[in-house]
Write a protein that binds this DNA or RNA. Structure first.
Lengths: 107, 107
DNA sequence: GAGGATTGCTACGCTATCGGTAGCAGCTAT
DNA sequence: ATAGCTGCTACCGATAGCGTAGCAATCCTC
């Protein structure tokens, strides 16, 4: 008799991973990190780099990312990745490599 | 005179990476992939694993993930990761490691 | 230092997405 | 047969995202 599939014992997803997936699961959040990969950008430049995300949403994402200490604000240059953010960028770099396998024509 | 920050020449984000970030930027999308890491789950089990995501949203995410050929449906077992999905899981495994650096007390 | 451009950011109203609950039809095990 | 589980849909209120306009502050140029 095959074991019921929902009863398979599995390690529960850690709270921190849930948190990471929650942050990443918001529109534009990962994109913002990705666009900051090269260097700091100010608000308008970041907006343009993301393909004209609306400023209200960008403002929210930046606030959240700063709360998580992924992004930091610097006085005269705008926003840049923190040390944590740089580490997250390395993860996204893997995602960039992975994205090559996506079908081009899907939408 | 410092170069204007918005004029820094930067490689534009590739269309495929945009697509990947778009898929991942939807609520629950990455979480679904993550929960399927161990093995196939049926609809209800997946719903429970995600912490009771509403069925309408899960249905939508599964449809999209199947369109992208990240998840596939198998007749009597439910849903499982495709080869592409497995590769994506490896990226998320990096994210899991990264998540350990997140502050615990932030919300 | 007057003028205009650029900056970060907010307000507003609309649409799209999410979330919660209920429930249905098909299958399965008893 | 019947009771439970399954995948999935419908409905609808709540939330998040979008697009545009615009404002106060700063910066640049003359």
């Amino acid at each position: 008799m095959p074991q019921r599939i929902q009863n398979i014992r599995r390690a529960p997803t850690s709270a921190l991973m849930c948190q990471a997936l929650d942050i990443g699961g918001r529109r534009w959040a990962l994109r913002v990190v990705w666009e900051l990969r090269v260097g700091p950008l100010n608000f308008r430049a970041l907006q343009a780099a993301c393909g004209h995300i609306s400023p209200s949403v960008l403002q929210r994402r930046l606030h959240e990312l700063r709360e998580q200490q992924i992004v930091e604000k610097i006085p005269r240059l705008g926003y840049r990745l923190s040390a944590q953010g740089e580490t997250l960028f390395h993860v996204l770099a893997q995602l960039d490599k992975w994205s090559a396998v996506l079908k081009k024509d899907s939408h």
